[in-house]
Amino acid sequence: MNVRRHPFAAGLSLLVLLFLWLPLIVVAVNSFNQQTIMAGWGGFTTHWYSLALHDQNVRTGLETTLYIAIASALLSLAIAVSGALWWRHASPRARAAYDGLIYARIILPEVVSATALFFLFLKIHFTLGLTAIVIGHTVWNSAYAAIIVQARMAGLDPALEEAAADLGATPWRAFRRVTFAALLPAIIAAGLLAFTFSFDDVVTSVFLQGASNTPLPVVILGMIRFRITPEINAVGLLVMLFTVTLMSFAVLAYATAGSLGRSGRRGNMLDIYRGR
């Protein structure tokens, strides 16, 4: 961009970048800061990392979060893939209804769906806890997974299964060797995305947690409220690195999926991610 010609846009962009990156940089720097009150630089240390890694709350939180994220991602994939398989041969009207349900789940504010689920579970005497959180996460996670898997499915020639059958593949073999195999990059991308969304979720988890172990993001929230120590910076940076790594893999997988399509369309999963 020409800064001189668009001074306002340039200034605004700078401000946005600053607000996005400055806190992250401060967190990263402070995670190595010896000074406890973080008022200035007190020297380099990895003490906070060893504290974080040995903190029982953080470790249980991480385990809980991993359990929820993996369960929710798998459940979302099952829903997304079976939905996409059905969608392919559905009538236009049924498709529109199905798509509407997907977008509704994405547009709906998370606090609303979390509250609704909270009251629903109370009403049907479903014990709040890990399972409830997994269900809560799957409500919106499955919608994102469905969009990604469906985008890939739409790019596949509807005659592929017939071609496989024509070449001697039973329906199950045709699904495994052709449909599933062709969808795989999208399935991987959708799974990683769902995992990441679930991994850093706070709202739904807080509402549906009940008396179970606390997931990591909620643990972090608690740590801030209780007493801020530089340990939180170390936890934050680790979570950030982990999430960024997973998202990179997801984007990579999705780009591969796009390049395999008939028209060679590239997926724009990043747009979806920004939407959240």
Binding site: D157, A163, L167, L184
Partner: peptide, 19 residues
């Protein structure tokens, strides 16, 4: 069933396996 027939088809869209 189609997968047991001694015939093979060239499809209009070719239906090549993209992966």
């Amino acid at each position: 069933r189609p997968y047991r027939r001694p015939v093979n088809t060239v499809f209009q869209s070719y239906a090549l396996f993209p992966h």
